[in-house]
Design a protein around this nucleic acid. Sequence first.
DNA 1: GTATTAATGCAAGTGACTTGCATCTTGACG
DNA 2: CGTCAAGATGCAAGTCACTTGCATTAATAC
Lengths: 142, 142
Amino acid sequence: MNIDQATEVLQMASHRITRTRKQLLQAIFKMRGPFSAGDLLASSASRSSRQPFDLVTIYRNLPLFEEVGIICRSDFSNGTSHFVLASGAHAHHHHHIVCRDCHKVEALDFCIVDAQEKILNQMGFSNIEHRLEFTGTCRACG
Amino acid sequence: MNIDQATEVLQMASHRITRTRKQLLQAIFKMRGPFSAGDLLASSASRSSRQPFDLVTIYRNLPLFEEVGIICRSDFSNGTSHFVLASGAHAHHHHHIVCRDCHKVEALDFCIVDAQEKILNQMGFSNIEHRLEFTGTCRACG
DNA sequence: GTATTAATGCAAGTGACTTGCATCTTGACG
DNA sequence: CGTCAAGATGCAAGTCACTTGCATTAATAC
């Protein structure tokens, strides 16, 4: 997925292609790895040429972009939501390990829980814990 | 672990056994399943005989109780932290499934990711997604 | 070009926590 | 026991990540 495709996806879903949305998409496609609303604000603030995004606009567009499949929510439970491009280095099914101290995020290419902790150990992480969480729609809400 | 043991653990770690802490422990040991700071506040408010806990006190004691091993943090990423008794029905290694709509939490007794989604399907959940997250201390912080 | 309706941006609100600070209480010591 | 210093508490106010209300602006259909 590139910016043009993302724009097309928005159009297909009858959302308007505004100046702000285009700039937001540009900022998003420049991001390496997971980003937060604040990251996007910061990225626009540093570009002196134009006015920065309004945080409200960011917060309203991120769920929209998620809904149409441009980005995916990818939370690390720091109290701040993060997103990644739906297709990019982070596109395939994978998980992360987050350092308890520096909060550095590292991507993992494999996905079997028990074996994983051993591999993480070999990668230099100690004191490893994991959290696995499922979401779904239960029968009652189905 | 029971209340007396929890009290002892606190004492061992040179924390004072105050009236409020004792009441908090009582409230916590009455909880079934994961609880939040708000749950504890509510539980004290409903007992008309004594004044309810101060939320600040709850927020200051929960991390302490966690530190000494009385409770474990168990987040469902709803934006609200939850805890469970370190040893209780929820003590062994397990995970949860959270309904996307009603946020009901159900405990799972097994832990292999791929097989799990099938089982969840049989349990009546649809549209299942999972999030697996590791935390550890990286070599740099080690 | 014009009208309709979505999108934007400011301001103010919310919810979950955190911090500051004065007051109170515990538990060690005399 | 009584005293007292440090830890614990509770009110008030602050912070952080978001959300909502509403008037203004601008993108698209015609």
